[in-house]
């Protein structure tokens, strides 16, 4: 296991960075609206019409990979409109 990815925050940040640096331009031109599972260890990406398809394609390529899900052309893979009351630090799992 790569020591750099020993917590979920590191995986998420690496996934966003790798996508931005290596795949964003091409994917937004050719795969807008689809989902991409970014393998943060091998710095590769697998595309799918659904999140499940993207993860399945990514695991086929590398069953031992660590994956971060992106939706091409969107700020987040999912949008949520309802916000529950927030007390304290909400993303504690991600540091």
């Amino acid at each position: 296991m790569n020591a750099l990815f020993n917590n979920p925050k590191a995986i998420a940040e690496a996934g966003e960075r790798i996508y931005r640096e290596k795949f964003k331009t091409d994917f937004e031109a050719n795969h807008r609206g689809k989902f991409a599972a970014i393998n943060v260890i091998k710095e590769t990406a697998a595309i799918g019409e659904t999140p499940e398809q993207a993860f399945e394609a990514a695991r086929k390529e590398d069953p031992h990979g660590l994956f971060h899900l992106i939706r091409v052309g969107y700020a987040g893979a999912f949008q949520v409109s309802y916000q529950f009351p927030r007390n304290g630090h909400q993303d504690w799992l991600f540091g």
Partner: peptide
């Protein structure tokens, strides 16, 4: 794996 939400205020989580 991990992912990011886009919240109603435009921030990411």
């Amino acid at each position: 794996g991990t992912t990011s939400y886009e919240l109603a205020d435009g921030s990411k989580s």
